[in-house]
Deep mutational scan, measured.
Amino acid sequence: RADKQHVLDMLFSAFEKHQYYNLKDLVDITKQPVVYLKEILKEIGVQNVKGIHKNTWELKPEYR
């Protein structure tokens, strides 16, 4: 399990490339446990629960 700041850096870097990611792809990118990753994502992102981007994560507007 990596340092939180290191995980945040990896996530922000990923979100610079694409606006939406599913959790599986973010786990592959960060190599972090799902529960730990979700904890961090809830602080900086929102999970889309409907629409064409259903079940994906994106950054909260203040982090874009």
Rank of each mutant, 00 (worst) to 15 (best):
F15V: 01
L11A: 00
L26G: 01
V27A: 14
T30N: 01
N22R: 13
M10V: 09
S13M: 11
F12S: 08
N55D: 14
I52Q: 14
L11D: 02
M10H: 04
V7I: 15
L26S: 00
E39D: 08
K31N: 15
E43G: 05
I52V: 12
F15N: 00
H6I: 15
K54S: 09
D3G: 11
A14V: 07
Q5S: 13
L23V: 07
D9T: 10
E43N: 05
Y21P: 04
D28W: 05
K17N: 05
V46Y: 11
K17I: 04
Y36P: 06
W57S: 03
T56L: 11
Y63L: 10
Q19K: 13
K4W: 06
V46D: 09
F12K: 11
E62W: 09
P33H: 03
V35K: 15
K42Q: 14
V35D: 11
T30S: 04
V34Q: 15
V27G: 09
K17G: 05
I44H: 02
D25F: 02
E43K: 05
H53L: 09
N55L: 04
K42H: 07
Y63D: 02
V34F: 08
V7F: 02
H53G: 11
G51Q: 05
I44A: 02
H53E: 09
H18C: 08
W57K: 04
M10A: 11
D9G: 08
Y20R: 14
R64V: 11
V49S: 13
L8Y: 07
V49R: 13
K60D: 03
V46R: 10
I29T: 07
N22Q: 12
E62K: 12
Q47V: 10
H18E: 14
N48M: 07
Q32R: 06
L26C: 00
Y20W: 09
K60N: 12
D9E: 12
A2V: 13
L37N: 00
L26W: 01
V35A: 14
L37Q: 01
Q32I: 08
G51P: 05
S13P: 03
D3A: 04
A14S: 09
L8G: 01
L41C: 02
K4Y: 09
N55W: 05
Q19A: 14
K60V: 02
Q5I: 06
L41G: 00
H53W: 08
V7P: 01
D3V: 08
K31V: 03
V46F: 12
Y36K: 13
K42E: 12
V49Q: 12
K42W: 06
P33G: 05
Y21G: 02
V49M: 12
K42P: 08
V34S: 14
K38S: 11
T30L: 03
M10Y: 02
E16N: 12
K54C: 11
G45W: 02
V35P: 13
R1E: 15
Q32C: 06
Q19H: 13
Q19D: 07
L41K: 02
K31C: 11
L41S: 00
D28F: 09
F15G: 00
V35S: 12
G45T: 05
L41N: 00
T30F: 02
F15L: 04
A2E: 15
L11M: 15
E39S: 13
D3Q: 12
H53Q: 10
V35Q: 12
Q5F: 09
